[in-house]
């Protein structure tokens, strides 16, 4: 293992300390926790919006804390859900009296820990609502699985739920628009190389020199198939076609596109993928309203990318365009 770290056990805490030192006027670390909150939290007359999950997906989620997106991010150990007490601290720190909205990615641990935190909050009289993001079309949603994973599409939920909250919307209104995003967003990823959790010291899986894993999750979970590496155009086509098969798109539908890097992919490659994705959408008569290319939801130093499409209506377009000022997402 070759990493710029001090101690494998300290990576999350030291990262968070470094993060708040980089944004001293915008962010603070809640003392004794791994919770990053807006400096001005709790914002009066606004529902607090919180997300969180395992670390290792930077800039998710702490990079999206700020005006117009999240009020707090709860950062677990690498690839490990944060604990209920930490999430509860975040809830208390951002509640202005209007309640708190939780954006949860669909993983067994995240769902259980956030549920327990919501129970603790309700016991203290804090109203809490949540949405579970499950945008990954690579895994089957059936009674035989835990359901689809939450991946890069989560960033659109942060943006839109955060914008709605900033407008002064109620907890119920935020939940409604967040669910609309979840119903209209789909993603799929692929990887060329695995990643190594610092405390584990070795890669979570192995890929041959000329292999790629299609449909990979953001923790290196296996996807649909492992096959010989293909060209950027073929990769773009595979990911996009799975998404288009999964959700109905009509001619002249408008979408937001996200081409997301998994951590170790040069922007050059992401733009090459984007080129083909845009061609494919044009051929289908789908109009691209806005495109995001970059590292939004990573998996440590994994090389690979994911494609996300969000079908837009007028409300989603307006909320996507609303101002946001966070370390990793500005509007």
């Amino acid at each position: 293992m070759k990493k710029i770290i001090n101690h494998p056990e300290q990576v999350v805490q030291e990262m968070l300390e470094g993060l708040v030192l980089a944004y001293p006027n915008e962010l603070k670390l809640l003392e004794g926790t791994s919770v990053i909150v807006r400096q001005d939290a709790p914002v009066q007359n606004k529902v607090g919006v919180i997300s969180g999950g395992g670390s290792g997906h930077e800039p998710a989620h702490a990079g999206y804390v700020g005006k117009g997106m999240l009020d707090a991010a709860v950062c677990g150990e690498v690839f490990t859900s944060p604990t209920p007490d930490q999430i509860f601290e975040a809830i208390k720190a951002v509640n202005s009296g209007k309640g708190v909205f939780l954006v949860i990615k669909n993983y067994t641990g995240d769902v259980m820990n956030f549920e327990m935190a919501a129970e603790l909050a309700e016991a203290e009289g804090i109203p809490v609502e949540s949405v579970i993001v499950n945008d990954d079309v690579a895994v089957e949603d059936s009674t035989y699985t835990t359901g689809r994973r939450g991946i890069a599409g989560t960033v659109f939920v942060h943006k839109i739920a955060g914008a709605k909250a900033e407008q002064g919307a109620s907890l119920a209104e935020i939940k409604a628009v967040a669910e609309k995003v979840v119903n209209n967003v789909r993603s799929m990823g692929m990887a060329l190389t695995p990643c190594t959790v610092p405390a584990a010291g070795k890669p979570g899986f192995e890929l041959g020199e000329n292999e790629m894993e299609v449909g990979i999750g953001i923790h290196g979970e296996p996807g649909i198939e492992r096959k010989p590496i293909a060209t950027a155009d073929e990769i773009a086509e595979t990911l996009t076609s799975h998404i288009l098969e999964d959700m109905e798109f009509k001619e002249n539908d408008e979408v937001a596109v996200m081409i997301n890097g998994m951590g170790a992919t040069p922007e050059m490659e992401l733009f090459i993928v984007n080129r083909k994705v845009q061609q494919l959408l044009k051929e289908k008569g789908i109009n691209v309203h806005e495109t995001f290319v970059g590292n939004y939801m990573t998996s440590l130093e994994m090389a690979g990318c994911s494609v996300t499409l969000l079908k837009l209506d007028e409300e989603l377009k307006e909320l996507l365009a609303a101002p946001a000022n966070t370390p990793a997402f500005k509007k």
Partner: peptide, 12 residues
Amino acid sequence: IMSKVGGASGPL
């Protein structure tokens, strides 16, 4: 365990 483990095994 609840406050130190996290993941799925912490709550369980």
